[in-house]
Design a binder for these strands. Structure first.
Length: 441
RNA sequence: GGAGAGGUGGCAGAGUGGUUGAUUGCGUCGGUUUCGAAAACCGAUUUGGCUGAAAGGUCAACGGGGGUUCGAAUCCCUCCCUCUCCGCCA
């Protein structure tokens, strides 16, 4: 969520940032108008409430005093508020009750307006960072680096669905059990899946300083709102029936972001670095008919997620660090990749800046997004109420970051397709061999 | 699934419906003392909104929401969470 103060005070900058993301800025004017209304209501409500509080505070002692001497006059606070000296407590009660009802009514109106503001702001994306390149579509993304050598073949490399057909790659079985987009692996491929997950977790926990977490795979609506998936991306999510109303997580970012919700971390405890393996569930609602073959785009997949909570001062640096942690996975697996910096028009809802890591997959002959490393500035922290505190005891909203490190399907695609041999075998990269337990698939 | 107990400030733990945003202890920070430290003593120590240049003023919050009342941490309803016991089952 954006800072309402920023919207008030730097309206032009906010609009410029949103416009760069192709967002209609009319919502900002609507919010500002409601905000003015809210502040007016709130100020008047509080003035009345303050007067009422003073009167109520004096009321008790008056009652006490009257027990001893019924002739004790009403206290000044009461007389002031009511504009007359009440004859007796019952008369005062009646008048106070009416005033109290008025204040409550004003409070209700103010809350209703505040609610409208929030409902609008929940649909407004984060502002792009000053570093994020301007652009309209994904065509304007910028390649920041390329790593590795695309493999050369003396034969035509197969796409993964042909390469491992009949070797434990059973999309039809997944389809029969659950529907299309639910992969089913048997034997070597299932083991490869597990090996990748273990490889990622071991790397991040042993060498990159992340703390491994095991999280729930189903979460509440509120948890998804903290990290920004709800309310806007409701259609993208699987949800259990109304008895529980839980959502299946689309990424471990969701539970991890809420770990420190509603709390304050001392600066010296940051950065907090978490990683977690979870399955991820996505409807891929807007992507029907796209990338339907093999495991290019699926409804359920495994991912090891990296998530960082840090201070506003450190977050830019942490973004580079986190991205490097993801890149190291690919480098150790010898998978050629490129780092793309997403432009303002293509960046995700909550992100201020984002790098996509795309792996080269020789069989399908394309780069495939395998990781998205984003810095969210205080966007998620404001929703989740994650704060940090410095030595001078100043609290401010934390910054959050996350990135895949990595998701298995596209990593596996690249690994299989790039390392295939003429006889249809697949070479397992050296770094993965201890986890997989063999040099060949 | 059934029965019960409980959710208060960083933690522990009080709180007859009326100066209780909240006693107290611990912790933390600052000070006095000391060559230094410990101990002792003194002081400070929740968060957020509105307003203000600032000082300050003011409102809100005792798990969430609603209600009763002139007035709620305290009474009522409801939801959530934690713990204990029973049942059931990985």
């Amino acid at each position: 969520m954006l800072d309402i103060k920023l919207i008030r005070e730097q309206t032009a900058d906010v609009k410029r940032g949103l416009a760069a993301r192709n967002v209609d800025t009319a919502v900002i004017d609507e919010v500002l108008q409601l905000d003015a209304q809210w502040r007016d209501l709130k100020t008047r409500e509080e003035e009345r409430q303050a007067a009422l509080n003073r009167a109520n505070k004096a009321f008790g002692p008056w009652m006490g005093a009257r027990k001893k001497n019924p002739a004790v006059p009403a206290p000044q606070e009461l007389t002031e508020l009511l504009g007359e000296t009440p004859a007796d407590p019952d008369q005062a009660k009646a008048r106070l009750g009416a005033l109290s009802a008025d204040v409550q009514e004003m409070a209700r109106r103010a809350d209703a307006v505040l609610n409208q503001i929030e409902q609008k702001l929940l649909f407004v994306p984060n502002l792009p960072s000053r570093h994020t390149p301007l652009g309209k579509t994904e065509a304007d993304n910028i390649v920041r680096k390329e790593w590795g050598q695309k493999p050369a073949f003396a034969f035509t490399p197969k796409a993964h669905w042909d390469l491992v057909a009949g070797k434990g790659f059973d999309m039809e079985i997944g389809g029969r059990i659950s529907g299309s987009g639910f992969p089913f692996f048997r034997g070597k491929l299932a083991r490869l899946e597990r090996a990748l997950v273990n490889f990622f977790l071991d790397l991040h926990t042993r060498e990159h300083g992340y703390t491994e977490c095991w999280t729930p795979f189903m979460v509440r609506q509120e948890t998804l709102q903290n990290s920004g998936q709800l309310p806007k991306f409701h259609e993208e999510m699987y949800r259990t029936d109304e008895r529980d109303g839980l959502y299946l997580i689309p990424t471990a970012e969701v539970p991890l972001t809420s770990v420190h919700a509603d709390s304050i971390l001392p600066d010296e405890q940051t950065p907090v670095r978490y990683c977690a393996f979870t399955p991820c569930f996505r409807r891929e609602a807007g992507a029907a008919g796209k990338d339907t073959r093999g495991i290019l785009r699926v409804h359920q997949f495994s991912k090891v997620e990296l998530m960082v909570v840090t201070t506003p001062e450190q977050s830019e640096q942490e973004h580079e660090t986190l991205t490097r942690c993801a890149e190291r996975c690919l480098e150790l697996l010898e998978i050629p990749y490129r780092r793309l910096e997403l432009c303002t028009g293509d960046i995700g809802f909550g992100a201020a800046r984002c790098y996509d890591l795309e792996v080269w997959a020789a069989g399908v002959g394309k780069y495939l997004e395998a990781s998205s490393c984003s810095v969210f500035t205080d966007f998620q922290a404001r929703r989740a109420k994650i704060r940090v505190r410095d030595k001078e005891k100043r609290t401010r909203l934390a910054h959050t970051l996350n990135g895949s490190g990595l998701a298995t399907p596209r990593t596996m695609i690249a690994l299989l397709e790039n390392n295939q041999t003429a006889d249809g075998e697949v070479r397992i990269p050296k770094a993965l061999q201890p986890h997989y337990g063999a040099e060949r698939l």
